[in-house]
Amino acid sequence: MKRSLRPLAATAVIFLIAYAVSVLQFPGMLSTRVLGNFLTDNAFLGIAAVGMTFVIISGGIDLSVGAVIGFTGVLVAVLITWFGVHPLVAFAIALLVAALFGAAMGLTIHYLQVPSFIVTLAGMFLARGGASVITQDSVPINHEFYRTISEAIIRLPGGGRLSFIGLLMVAVFLVGALLAHRTRFGSYVYALGGNTVSALLMGVPVARTTVQIYMLSSVLAALSGIVFSLYTSAGYPLAAVGVELDAISAVVIGGTLLTGGYGFVLGTFVGVMLLGLVQTYIIFDGTLSSWWTKIVIGVLLFLFIVLQRIIFAASAPGEESSEKV
């Protein structure tokens, strides 16, 4: 097996074992209802994590994701509730704003040679601050369109429900996987994560690709914000605080190397599902504090970083031959 696949395989195996153990303890967890809710409850995280996967594979990081989700939620809510704009128009505006926002961050990162960590940290404060300037309160959304969307569900045998936003997340993952693994843009993203200097010398349009990566991440964060507003039927400036960190965790647990160059979009899906499983387990248990989620995520993250370290250090080229000695 290719060594880059190993962390992903490990995640998948851990997910299956963890799920099996959960089902043994709570047979109720093996139901279409739980699986359907997995998708719905994690839709906004999953969509944001797809963008984060691209950023991390390219060797960067995007800390603005959670703030963009919050900002988008407020923007959409305000446009619909205060100004009576149709939700679809509001969505388009929000996505456009996010695209410009991402492009600005990408341009800064590339042309000013500032680390993405700093630029997106600034972006995070800007977006969060912007949302709070628009309104300090939660703005409810009462619109026919929102009701239509939330009623648009596919019923599964066994009482499960596939929601629109859950399916949207799956669609984003599929498109993201195609984009990452089957297009030239995708190969450029990996090239940047491998070695930026080489990429430049090989003719990779580094500037354009960098801008596109951060645009993609911000647009997906905005889409995630829209999904979040559909999920909660409101916009709140302090929504989704820290989601960027959950997204990063999901990406790393899904087998993407934090230093860039290696990773899979569908790995992130498994990562998101694993995080969702932990939460569901805690809900089923009922006695555990929800903060246990954080502890489990912390342990998982630590495990995976160690695992990747071992896999990539142990099989560095040229060292295999010495093993015989």
Partner: peptide
């Protein structure tokens, strides 16, 4: 790019496409 396949290193930026996909 040590992290990519030999074929991709040969053709990066000029990969043969089919329906827009590599």
């Amino acid at each position: 790019l040590p992290n990519r396949s030999v074929a991709e290193n040969l053709f990066l930026g000029h990969q043969p496409l089919r329906f827009g996909f590599v």
